[in-house]
Amino acid sequence: MVSISAIAQTASLMGDLARASMLIALMDGRALTATELARIASIAPQTASGHLGRLVDAGLVVRESQGRHRYHRLASPAVAHMIESIMALTTDQDTPHAPLRSAVPVTGPRDKALRYARTCYDHLAGQLAVEMTDSLIKSGRIELSSEGGALTDEGDRFLRSLGVDLDAARHRASSRGTRRVFCRPCLDWSERRLHIGGALGAAICQCYLDNGWIRRAAESRAVSVTPHGQQAIRELFPHDGPY
């Protein structure tokens, strides 16, 4: 049961300018570090950490660790809907019709090729990998969240039709002495959203290489998409924007 005190606590958290700035910055779905959010809110990183701790305790934000880094994202779509509702009810008194803006941090490598498509260990990463993952999720072929991932029956059939060796991937994941997970979420360094990792991610990457859809760049983790690959990806992985 929702209590009046809980409503008041949530409202007070949103009422702070620094915390509101950080929450709005997270509305695009990316996960950001405390340092990045501190820059957005124009406060010290230590102060930002304190604010984020309160937002995490209140269930508005979740904290995820990946390697040496800790990232923060909105806890659920319900939190995003709440922020959107508040934004819809508020207007700037000086410029009533001006859209609400928040500084957008640049994340990941500055090199455009690396930002677009690269390898992360042995699987695909970057904008291309995230958009293809989004397409697989939207089509119901994969289920992926920060807690884990699973390939659906439809996804199994679809990826096999592309030539992805799922049997070998499952064998690697189930072999003794390996810690490899078959399908796991990997938080993308530049996009700060999830792409597919684990043995499945590696098998997909190898399939794309074998199909001639992508090529590795010399002395770089960047990969280039071939003309044949561009056509195939557009047809097989539809999404809202251009690849």
Rank of each mutant, 00 (worst) to 15 (best):
A150Q: 04
A168C: 08
R184I: 09
D165H: 13
R172G: 09
S145G: 14
R193S: 09
H195F: 08
Y116P: 00
R115K: 04
A168F: 09
R70N: 09
D94G: 04
L114N: 11
R193H: 07
D111Q: 15
F158L: 02
R110E: 05
A199R: 04
P77G: 08
H69L: 11
D156K: 03
V106D: 05
R141G: 00
L151P: 00
A103R: 11
K138Q: 15
M82Y: 10
L114C: 01
R192L: 08
D92M: 12
G197N: 06
A78F: 04
L124P: 00
E147A: 14
T178Q: 08
A113P: 00
P77T: 05
V104M: 10
R101Y: 13
Y116E: 12
A169M: 07
G108T: 03
R160L: 13
I196A: 08
C186G: 01
T91G: 05
A199I: 04
S139L: 14
P105A: 15
V181E: 07
S161L: 02
R170S: 13
L166A: 05
Q127G: 00
T119N: 04
K138T: 15
V79K: 13
M87A: 12
G126C: 11
T107R: 11
A88P: 00
D134G: 07
K138V: 15
W189H: 15
L200M: 06
L128K: 03
L159M: 05
H123T: 10
T107D: 09
L74M: 07
S174Q: 08
A80T: 07
K112Q: 06
I196H: 06
C120W: 04
P109F: 11
A78S: 11
I196L: 09
R160D: 02
I142C: 04
S102A: 14
A117K: 01
